[in-house]
Design a protein around this nucleic acid. Structure first.
Lengths: 258, 258
DNA sequence: CGCGAGCTTGATGCCGATCAATGCATGTGG
DNA sequence: CCACATGCATTGATCGGCATCAAGCTCGCG
């Protein structure tokens, strides 16, 4: 039987086609959320978490293909991914397009909007997803009272900057196969953090989206996948991927295999 | 007579070779600093600024070629550039190297360190420079009291993220000349903000450093400069640059000239 | 004056883009 | 249940932009 673990395991699957946006009036309970060790409340006490829950009052469902927000939208809230999978992408006026990131459960979306009070990129759901809505001004207010929250929020922003620098390194100095290797390692690592198999996964994005993220054309991504399969590093069946030799990937990312 | 304004104008020039690091016990006065409209205190009242000055107690001079901090150093402070010019760069173990940014007066350095309490990149002075030292934990404490400070600090971090996304777009989808055009426009715009001529400047970095930032080899950068000169877009004499046709640069960055 | 770091310019080759055709999976309507 | 459309992936052939290799050149400085 085929292993379909991937990160589809605990996703909210909504069929047949749900309304694209649905507000859930139910109380959000960070304290009982299985993402609390990945998300904003990391390291917070019980009563601090209650304060946070009080402002994170709503959830929002986003159907596959729909935007959570778009570039130019007024910025009011951050979003924590509960279930599902997103991409953020920049599109310049002349049709150039760049995927700037893929976000999975526990990761924060919308940080780009703080600087100008408008979102500067599009966030699109790659599968039916749900997010916790975190009204930003309330978060600012609360983080003035809870230094643990403040500290953690700053760490999240800083790590986003560091992540971006890593992508710049990748885009600026790696070759196609190295880029894909780095991408796959990053993906499996994040899945492992979330308790999923690191060796078997289902890609939620197309070759074109991967290519956009990595600064490659979709054909090049496809060829690199095929190469990895030939070399016994990956098993690739469309979006079903099995990692056979993680070390080989790691060696590609460093310079050892050149 | 040659216009040498560039951004050398108000820089502290220290010859012959000063001690690489010098602490200045003098009081820092944000309120009388001509960078206060670019730096952290933007939009703060007089007495708020006094609170900030109280924690920004020291300056530090960094000689050309010397590090302000290095990857792996313990993170304790942020730094605001007072005078001079820096680059930040990432170097992976296998010798790959990526310049992730160039910082000039009024810009903040060190945000990368917040996430892990260690710096994740090197910051090197490209000319004799000086910075204001901002002890980070004191800044956190103060920004819990002064919401204006908090808000502005968050905006600065967010804008850094947005800037990085822009670089990702550049690295992922632009061709050599487009990259250099975007780079030159960005540079002239920042100079203009600081009251310098936007049409005449002196590059503080080598072709190789520009290339590393733009994901190009130094020869390609050089050829692109030559091309711009041929086309009457720039006048290039080593590091002396004069912008003759800013519109042409702008058109290159968008798709109009393709 | 001569050295060296940084810059320019030319010749060549390779990696990845582009163009094009085919394959494969899913879904839809007859 | 099949025929067909559609979206995505694979694979091949060719092309072009940038890297690489290799000389010279410029300028500041000891």
């Amino acid at each position: 039987m085929r292993d379909t673990a991937g990160f589809a395991g605990n996703h909210v699957v909504m069929h047949p086609s749900p309304p694209p946006v649905r507000m859930e009036p139910f109380k959000v309970a960070c304290s009982s959320c299985n993402l609390r060790e990945l998300c904003l409340p990391v390291g917070m006490s019980e009563d601090q978490m209650e304060r946070l829950e009080a402002i994170v009052a709503t959830r929002r469902a986003v159907a596959r293909g729909e935007p959570l927000f778009r570039s130019g939208d007024a910025f009011t809230s951050l979003y924590a991914v509960r279930t599902g999978f997103f991409k953020t992408c920049l599109s310049s006026e002349d049709g150039r397009d760049q995927v700037t990131g893929f976000q999975m459960a526990g990761e924060l979306l919308g940080l780009d909007g703080i600087g100008t009070d408008r979102h500067t990129c599009d966030a699109l759901a790659l599968e039916d997803s749900s997010v916790c809505v975190i009204p930003y001004h309330q978060l600012e207010d609360l983080s003035r009272e809870l230094s643990d929250l403040q500290r953690h929020f700053h760490k999240i922003m800083s790590r986003e900057i560091v992540r971006d620098h890593g992508v710049m390194l990748l885009l600026g100095s790696m070759r196609a196969e190295e880029r894909l290797a780095a991408f796959m390692l990053n993906l499996t690592q994040r899945l492992r953090t979330r308790g999923f198999s690191a060796s078997s996964l289902v890609l939620r994005m197309t070759r074109e989206e991967i290519g956009s993220y990595l600064g490659l054309k979709l054909e090049t991504v496809s060829r690199a996948f095929s190469k990895f399969q030939e070399d016994g590093v990956l098993e690739v069946k469309q979006r079903q991927i099995r990692v056979l030799d993680a070390d080989a990937l790691q060696k590609l990312v460093n310079g050892t295999a050149c």
